[in-house]
Design a protein around this nucleic acid. Structure first.
Lengths: 174, 174
DNA sequence: ATGAGTGTTTAGTACTTACTAAACGCAGTA
DNA sequence: TACTGCGTTTAGTAAGTACTAAACACTCAT
């Protein structure tokens, strides 16, 4: 029976909420995305209110964050003052957008500060035993971050090429 | 002068604190790891107290989490009742350990619930238009998660092979 | 045993954050 | 101009979290 479809939607929404919270986003964010993702047509803000149980205000702010990440798209119809929202279903497009956004985040600022540490050490070098040790350690961490960054870029490029490349990567590592 | 070494350590520690917070860990965790990572020798709990300014209690609990993730190792010396802690410097080893831990986390539980949704839909199938739509969407998300998981495993295998493979991956995608 | 020196646990606190409720601004319409 | 129907902003709240301070438990030495 189709009555259980609402139940399935609810379960799915709850799952995405937890995943959202796990990644450090508000759980409401995951709920909003889930509702949009399972909807065949774009939804208005009030419809999202009804589906999620959140208030307009919360949805207003959180949907903007989702849009900034490229996970939802806002559209408007002529002669209709409502805005309509739909989920991005191409996750690779979303990931690329998220990673682009990340460039300006606190995270990259912090990582750059590690590189800055290296540079200041090089600038006024002291040939001390501990100094050398610290330098090597910081350098190793920097290299690790760079590796992660390279991998990230690899994933971004994946978006252009499609799914099969993951298995391609795996075969390379075999 | 070596006086600025303490300054460099402090800057580095603060950087790692922010990175830690970004990933959803307490910032004190990053600070503890940073202090250990830059120390040429293992440190006792009291020494960590002095370096970080945190209290014994906080360090006690947070260092256990770090140890569980494989980011620090605890050791004890004969005739010395203190425990000593040192940072894991092989980050790939740490990553593998973290990913192993992740298997039991809320994240994977949530992802499994998505797969569960698919299975219950298949079990009592309804040939409804919306039903089909929802099923396809959930399935697409599932495939995306699987791809991420494959990539994760690729990174885990990387640990065995060393750094150069990241560039190798990039060359494949070229 | 007693005491000193460990790490651990617990109760409480300051702070952050996700959210609500309601005021607000801003269009289009009468 | 006032009104209606939107989305947005803001003030306040409830809950979670990282941390402190202090009590606690354990181990070894005397």
């Amino acid at each position: 029976m189709s009555a259980s479809l609402t139940r399935i939607k609810k379960d799915f929404t709850q799952g995405l909420s937890q995943i959202s919270r796990f990644w450090g986003f508000p759980k409401g964010m995951g709920a909003i995305f889930a509702v949009l993702y399972l909807s065949p047509m774009p939804l208005s803000l009030d419809e999202i209110v009804q589906e999620t149980g959140l208030t307009k205000g919360a949805i207003s702010t959180e949907i903007r964050a989702l849009a900034r990440m490229g996970l939802v798209h806002r559209s408007s119809r002529l002669g209709d003052r409502k805005d309509y929202y739909e989920a991005e279903s191409d996750f690779y497009a979303a990931i690329r957008s998220i990673l682009k956004e990340r460039q300006n985040s606190e995270f990259d600022r912090a990582i750059r500060s590690v590189r800055g540490t290296l540079e200041t050490m090089e600038a006024n070098w002291v040939d001390d035993e501990e100094w050398n040790f610290v330098y090597e350690r910081v350098q190793a961490l920097q290299e690790f971050f760079d590796a992660i960054d390279s991998l990230t870029m690899a994933v971004v490029k994946l978006e252009k090429l499609g799914f099969s490349n993951v298995t391609k990567i795996l075969s390379v590592l075999k």
